Amino acid sequence: MSSESTESTFQRIDAGPPARPDIAPDLKTPLEQILLLLFLAVPLLAVALAVPVAWGHGLGWHDIVIGGVMYLISGFGITVGYHRLFTHGSFKASRPLRIGLALAGSLAVEMSVTDWVAAHRRHHKYSDAAADPHSPWRFGRSAVGVTRGFLHAHVGWLFNRHRTCPKRFCPDLLADRDVAAVAAAFPWCVAASVLIPPVAGGLWSMSWTGALTALFWGSLVRIALLHHVTFSINSICHLIGERPFTTRDQSRNVWWLAVPSLGESWHNLHHADPTSARHGVLPGQVDPSAALIRWFERLGWAHDVRWPTAERIAARRACAAEQAR
């Protein structure tokens, strides 16, 4: 498909009042668009200021601990909760763990659990095809097209006023009263995500300075870093990297994102076997999210975990080798 035909296909998908069942009938409001821009731009500005602030002794070990803990809580909330549990059903969880993971994922300040799951299930249904909400290939394979596609997949798609329809893609979560309640409380979770670090920093140091530095590092910088690591799975992991497993899309493994993404960047296996609780299945592939699920299983909080088997892994590698010939 040429660059021009690819772009026009995507434009037809997005154009006009949507009649397709995977698109919600209501549009994002201008206020939502403004808030989205603020929650993307302000934390990113904090990252740009991080080096001079740290150089001026504006980074203490309290900030590192608070920021690190918040990164892990909200990051695992996305990878283990929003993604592997709620989107793909890679394991079943006790009620307290389900609620806890939904709340933890909400602290990432990405989307409510139902909106996030709806968009991601839609991505898998149409991966790198016309209705994929964030394919980096939407403008073709030329240098200009790939650049535009990368920017779209990384962050641009978030500003599309058409939202994915949760009733179409996650009716199971809408029917779950606990999950629906957490989704409805998303604005409060956003406020908590921003306010918990400065409160912790202020109480720990018993100073306003400690509160302000914790707000900078534990709230703004942490939110920006987690945002762009998550966005990189949509953009980078569909453009570059290795493809040892057979998929119908361009999903790839990017090893240097494995630790900050908590194992999500072993993206090729994930698209080859979406319900697998472990994404890093080959030797040397670190997957912290799978390790946490293992701990939940040992504690009795998680069960029916869909661990990959040697036979499934071998079958998908064999198909990939056959395709490469």
Rank of each mutant, 00 (worst) to 15 (best):
R95P: 04
F10D: 06
F10E: 09
A41L: 10
L72F: 03
L38S: 08
A102V: 04
A104G: 00
S94V: 11
F86T: 05
L40T: 11
M111H: 13
V69E: 07
P30W: 08
T87Y: 00
R95K: 14
Q11N: 13
A50P: 01
V42Y: 07
A104I: 03
D63R: 02
L59R: 09
S112M: 06
Q11S: 13
S94N: 05
H57L: 14
T29S: 14
F76G: 00
V69W: 05
I34G: 04
A48H: 03
L37K: 04
L107G: 03
L35D: 06
V47S: 11
G89C: 08
Q11C: 08
L38C: 14
W61Q: 11
L36E: 10
V80C: 11
L97T: 12
D63N: 09
P30N: 11
E32T: 14
A19F: 01
P43D: 10
K92D: 13
S74V: 02
G89T: 09
L35G: 06
L107W: 00
Y71E: 03
L35P: 00
I78C: 03
F91W: 04
I64A: 12
S74Q: 02
T6W: 05
I78Y: 05
A104W: 02
A41I: 03
D26F: 06
F91K: 10
G105W: 00
W61D: 11
V42K: 05
V117E: 06
A24T: 01
F39P: 03
I13F: 15
E32Q: 15
A19T: 15
V53G: 04
R84A: 10
V113M: 11
L85I: 12
A93I: 08
T29Y: 02
V80H: 05
T114F: 04
I99M: 04
V69G: 08
P25C: 11
V53S: 02
H62P: 12
A54D: 12
A104V: 04
I78K: 01
P96A: 09
H83D: 07
S112A: 15
A15V: 10
S112I: 07
A46G: 13
L38D: 06
T6Y: 14
F10T: 10
Y82M: 14
G68V: 02
A48V: 14
L40V: 10
T6D: 08
H62I: 15
A102T: 01
A48D: 07
L44C: 07
T29A: 06
P30S: 01
L49H: 08
V69R: 01
L31N: 11
P25L: 15
G58H: 01
Y71Q: 04
T79C: 06
D63V: 09
R20Y: 05
V65Y: 02
S8D: 05
L45P: 02
V47D: 10
A41D: 00
D63L: 10
L44V: 14
A54M: 12
P96T: 13
F39W: 00
F76R: 00
W61L: 11
D63H: 01
V113I: 15
V51P: 04
L97R: 07
F86S: 13
I99D: 06
L101C: 08
S106E: 01
I64T: 12
S106C: 02
A41S: 12
A19L: 15
V113S: 07
I73C: 06
V42G: 12
L72V: 02
G100C: 01
K92R: 15
S74N: 01
G67S: 15
A46Y: 05
P96H: 08
A102G: 02
